[in-house]
Design a protein around this nucleic acid. Structure first.
Lengths: 244, 244
DNA sequence: GGCCCTCGGTGACATGGTCACCAAAGCCGG
DNA sequence: CCGGCTTTGGTGACCATGTCACCGAGGGCC
């Protein structure tokens, strides 16, 4: 992957105990890996690297065989697919504490990944190379469970994404997305175009819908940002999934 | 799973060589398993069962933790998801020679599968129970590769499904589906309602679109079936993906 | 100030989804 | 065979969404 480099946090020369305590710390941040036996934890830490990626970097892309599994420590990665038609479909977002696990399919299958991932913020992540991944997968049932659990969650997400695309009204989906994207001061920093891309719709639709929200006094708008005023009303709409 | 029973084809009392030759035969039908070493093939065969399922059976369903991986020998299984809204989304179809691999995520993750599978025809399949699956996954890198390759293909399919739903015109999608479903005499046996469900749209839309196809002389219709007359025109439309 | 690019607004139109309702074709019991 | 029921498909009205063309405001930059 881009920007891989020797991890700063694992200099040579430290004694074994120290190293384990120091570098194993990130393992504790992944629920499914905590319970690994000590020797496997050390194998995992020794066989992987911590990488830093600046915002905007293409973390992986189609046509490039994935060669490492990323576990995100900080930041977010947006995963989308370039359509045959040139347009882009937003698929999901990987947050800190999660893994770009769908790449593993391609990693072990030696097949190309058909989606691409972009660092939305500066990202710190653990990169587990193919060899280490395969080694751990062979040695530990717990590790396999960790991987498959991550898969399971992603696939379930994809299913509900499809469900929403097919059956959910745009205003409901937009309301939900606004709530997800709002910062602690209830402001969403995104252009109508960006919101449209995330929801797989056109900018005009976002504009119209937001105008309607504004008319109802739910939001206020400024160039490049949306301020949620009537948050409870928006939540009510977002929760009204399936009532049509 | 429903209908699991002792495989008829593996009676006790045969000598080892005979048994291996006899029962290992199905393994050869799965490209990725052919190259397994002999001992693992035998472990796989010994640890799994051949099951038969009549058409219409619900093979797996949400709320039921999957406990076996199915490799299809004959027949097809339709995988769909019950929407929150009660409606159903067709996700994909598993054919002979493929696996219901997405259930494995839930099998190893001990999580519920959110989609359900229905046997469209009578189905014969190999059921690999969780224990055998985990054993093989731990012992063989090749087996893991087989699993992840299957994953990779399914996930890629899901991605293109999303892509089509979002960006593809209904008439193009319908044309493509008709070609997929047509038998050797160019007849599709399906009601408008069934076609609508597969494509995630309403019966009325299918009716209108087929009426238009008929007006152009591309198809003829009878109750419950569509006969493709101008196959080449339909193919041209189906291939026109992305030209809008 | 003048240029240019991004962001957003708007009207007209095409496509697709929903609803209500109808008619024709098979099915089945009597 | 009749009559009623169910399944299948047809249709018009209407709403939601996507597309296209075009415009104007804001803001950066020379």
């Amino acid at each position: 992957m881009h920007q891989t480099r020797r991890p700063d946090c694992m200099p040579r020369g430290l004694d074994e105990t120290r190293m384990a305590t120091e570098t194993a710390s990130w393992i504790e941040r992944f629920e499914g890996l905590k319970r690994l036996p000590e020797d496997l934890k050390q194998a995992l830490v020794a066989g992987s690297q911590i990488v830093s990626v600046p915002a905007g970097t293409q973390v992986f892309e189609p046509g490039q065989s994935a060669d490492a599994l990323l576990l995100l420590l900080e930041g977010t990665v947006r995963v989308q697919q370039k359509s045959d038609t040139g347009r882009e479909v937003f698929l999901y977002r990987v947050h800190a504490g999660e893994s770009c696990v769908l790449t593993t399919a391609c990693m072990l299958a030696f097949e190309d990944y058909s989606a691409d991932g972009i660092a939305e913020t500066d990202v710190r992540a653990v990169a587990i190379p193919r060899a280490t991944f395969d080694d751990l997968a062979g040695r530990s049932s717990l590790f396999r469970e960790f991987i498959f659990k991550a898969y399971s969650r992603r696939i379930t997400d994809l299913f509900t994404l499809i469900d929403h695309i097919v059956f959910q009204r745009m205003d409901v989906r937009l309301a939900a997305r606004l709530l997800e994207l709002a910062d602690e001061t209830n402001v969403v920093h995104a252009t109508h175009q960006a919101l449209g891309t995330e929801l797989g719709t056109a900018r005009e639709v976002i504009s119209r819908t937001l105008a309607e929200f504004q008319r109802r006094g739910w939001v206020e708008q400024a160039r490049g940002e949306v301020r949620l005023v009537g948050r409870s009303a928006i939540e009510r709409l977002a929760r009204s999934a399936g009532e049509r």
